[in-house]
Design a protein around this nucleic acid. Structure first.
Lengths: 344, 344
DNA sequence: ACAATTAATGCAAGCGGTTGCACAACTGTC
DNA sequence: GACAGTTGTGCAACCGCTTGCATTAATTGT
């Protein structure tokens, strides 16, 4: 059926071990033999079977990438970057979608464990203890979550939330609503923590609404609550919710940003295309994907690296935020970008 | 390190072959033995190593999924559906992104061939002959392309393009532009073929602009060309281009739909959220993903199935199309859905 | 000229499983 | 109670490849 190392050995008149070494340890084989073997392999269209190789070496050259929802526009750029980076290092990527279901996360990690060199857990919803336990079964790198002892790449959303709330209070908003994300989201907790502190410092009232599903619908369905709460500004857990919320607000007859200002988080492509264009906290999604892969691949070398990489976020001011009722500094037009501070 | 079949055998006092059969042919082992083995396996946390199993059975329980661009919103729903369907059948999915590069497509298929039971080629850009050749090396199902002898799932974009053009001519448009997609896209050729025929039948002039990259930028950058061509209506290769085009048109001072009507294809989530909301041809992306997986998995059973599954499309009329200068039937408001005819 | 290296290759075990075959130990039959 | 038929289990080869070790040939030093 498929051409194996034996076919190549036969064709080039050497033992299979020599063929094997031609590919995995070329310096051990005579240049003449080597080129003859390579020629035969080329001609027969031979490619080493990675699964077979993995059986003995323990390295599969595969990576598992687990996300909560592929259809959430936040993830594709991350997946794309990770895939591309992995391929640079001759690795392939398994992608699994867990539908925001913690139990499924565990199941998928376990199912994948044997056929990958490691797993990238993106925005996991499961418990810390479970993650710690899984990381004993397979190398893990976590994205958007901090757990002591587990290597991680995190977007500094706390800083992003601070910038967002400061932007709002500076423009005179005193009644701010926070649309929180799904239960189990570390990011959501971080945002809440930071937003609460920043609001207090800015003498503004922060009402938390949620948890909510991190989708357009999740935002749309709380538009009434936002209005009822009397908020003049809203920070949403992500852009999708912010966009849904704006839809809901407009439908309910409120104007954005004249009546209510809305800020999202993520800066997905969409945010530049809606009307009004969304003010948002840009997260370096692609960079996170690349970094996570690098971290995972380095994981093997230096033993048990446990580094946490923090990626900066920045505020992108577009058209969905305006002045509030209180005293404020003057508006700034266009796509203003407020970079965050230094990240570690 | 990892717990193997041997550990389980030792723990339960049977030969490894009995353990093996407990998992792969339970009816061959005594119920008592079976439950003892299962108990031990459970307790040790044993999971069969699929790669090892594949070595001898030839079935990997993996599927390759190759797309041109993960970040293109058209693909995530397809990937998500495929992944979910695959997992239902206990399969895992490799996702690869080829960046619209035909050469990379070939390379990736070959690289994946040995570790998958088959490959889903979504909107491939490579040549028919190459696809035929690859399909001799690994079971292939092609999405959005028709090649004799290769099983395929195709969205009936020809029909969609017909509905779109008919919609435009019926509303009095006589100068229509077609923004074609990337070179090598079967879909783009189909759309062009169908749109040309339909325009002729409707006594309208069709100007083809392209090929273009299938992105927002691809649409944005031809806004000038569209205006110069004097078109009062445009059908774009996909929604992303349509949205980019609208941006470009608005920037150039043209109104949509008052001056120019725009129709997209795909009905990505975005299209419902832009202003004006995009009139578009909805393609059943998730259904295609599921169907493609099913087709691939059936592929093994009935030998060399070569079926082509056609999926219907429908026109979703929103706010980006309006009456043209010519005679026309009255406008219909809201989200009107015009379903396509019967597909085979 | 001969021992000691070094370089290139072959041999065979083994990675974690599956599976055809052989072999007992039962079952039922006449 | 001998016989054929089941059933359940073990044995060992094998999937495609890697790798420690043995073997041989070529090279080097003295």
């Amino acid at each position: 059926m498929s051409v194996t190392i034996r076919d190549v050995a036969r064709a080039s008149g050497v033992h299979i071990s020599t063929v094997s070494r031609t590919f995995s340890a070329p310096h051990l084989v005579n240049p003449n033999t080597r080129s003859r073997v390579l020629a035969c392999a080329e001609q027969l269209g031979y490619r080493p079977n990675r699964a077979a190789r993995a059986l003995i070496t323990g390295r599969t050259y595969n990576i598992g990438l687990i996300v909560a929802d592929i259809a959430n526009p936040f993830f594709p750029p991350l997946i794309k970057a990770a895939e591309s980076q992995a391929r640079k290092h001759d690795h392939h990527i398994f992608v699994a979608d867990t539908n925001e279901d913690p139990a499924l996360e565990e199941e998928v990690v376990r199912a994948l464990a044997k056929q990958v060199d490691g797993v990238l857990l993106c925005s996991p919803r499961m418990s810390n203890t479970l993650i710690e336990q899984l990381s004993r079964e397979v190398p893990l790198v976590v994205v958007n979550r901090q757990i002591t002892g587990i290597p991680a790449v995190v977007m500094d959303v706390a800083q992003g939330a601070r910038l967002a709330i400061e932007h709002l209070t500076a423009r005179g908003h005193r009644e701010i609503a926070l649309l929180s994300g799904p239960r189990g989201s570390w990011t959501s907790r971080e945002i809440r923590r930071s937003a609460t502190a920043t609001a207090r410092a800015g003498h503004a009232e922060l009402t938390v609404i949620g948890p909510n599903p991190p989708t357009e619908t999740g935002g749309l369905s709380v538009a009434e609550d936002v209005l009822r709460a009397g908020a003049t500004a809203v920070l949403a857990y992500n852009d999708l919710m912010a966009i849904g919320l704006i839809e809901g607000l407009l439908t309910a007859g409120a104007r954005v940003p004249e009546d209510v200002s809305v800020i999202g988080i993520d800066d997905i492509m969409l945010s530049r295309l809606t009307r009004p264009k969304l003010t948002t906290v840009a997260t370096p999604t692609a960079a996170a994907g690349r970094a996570a892969v690098d971290m995972l691949l380095a994981h093997g070398d230096d033993r048990r690296s446990t580094a946490h990489l923090h990626l900066q976020t920045e505020l992108v001011i577009r058209d969905s935020t305006g002045p509030g009722p209180g005293p404020h500094s003057p508006a700034d037009p266009g796509d203003v970008i407020v970079p965050g501070g230094v990240a570690s």
